[in-house]
């Protein structure tokens, strides 16, 4: 069951014109920004399938940039996202890819600044709902049927236990978990698929833990 909530169907409240190409696109951009943890200085956006063919008509480009600026689907600033990004020194390039993707609405975002870089592949699966398929070349084996969060942390002992502990406190069961790191002792990330929705209070509690750098929802 990829659509879990009635508000996946009656919702989201959004700026038109397309739930998959505008609202979904904005959400993919916003997740990328949240996982990156700050506004990037540059972004290379690769569009595939229907995204590549119709992005101008649907405002997909504007919406992804709006997401990178941390705007929600109903934020009217999305309409001016290109101009605002330019003013704030966020340089964006779009690439129309010919490759036929597994899902018709796929975007690969490579974003970064002087400090670092992030690569994320997002799918817009309909009605504004999205799935994150890949982060930094790390293919996520998520079912998409349960809520999921990503945690970026310093690679130290106890981090995984402390996150699991917070979830336990809020009586949230972990159904599936993946951990990955680039280099021992540097940056690590964990992806947790849960049976229950992880609300903002829990997210805040996790982000306050030592050595935790970012927490973001990747499946609502």
């Amino acid at each position: 069951m990829k659509f879990r909530s009635v508000f996946d169907i009656i919702g989201p409240v959004m700026i038109g014109p397309s739930s998959s190409h505008t609202a979904g696109a904005a959400r993919i951009g916003r997740v990328a920004r949240n996982v990156f943890g700050r506004q990037p200085k540059w972004a290379h956006v690769h569009l595939y399938g229907s995204f590549a063919e119709t992005y101008r008509g649907h405002g997909t480009d504007v919406a992804i940039v709006g997401g990178l600026l941390d705007y929600d689907t109903f934020d009217e600033r999305i309409i001016q996202a290109m101009e605002i990004a330019a003013e704030q020194g966020l340089e964006v390039k779009f690439f129309e890819e010919k490759e036929v993707p597994e899902h018709p609405n796929t975007a690969r975002l490579v974003i970064g600044d002087d400090e670092g870089e992030l690569e994320l592949v997002g799918l817009s699966i309909g009605g504004g709902k999205i799935e994150i398929d890949e982060i930094n070349g790390f293919k996520l084996k998520l079912t998409g049927e349960n809520p999921a969060i990503i945690v970026v942390n310093n690679d130290r002992f106890g981090c995984i236990a402390s996150v699991a502990n917070v979830l336990a406190t809020y009586e949230i069961n972990i159904g599936h978990m993946e951990v990955s790191r680039k280099e021992k002792g540097k940056l690590a990330l964990m992806v947790l698929e849960t049976d229950e929705t992880v609300d903002q209070e829990v997210m805040d509690a996790i982000s306050k833990l030592p050595n935790i750098l970012q927490v973001a929802r990747i499946v609502e």
Partner: peptide
């Protein structure tokens, strides 16, 4: 601004 039902 609209509400998607089920899409925009």
């Amino acid at each position: 601004m609209i509400c998607a039902t089920p899409t925009a």
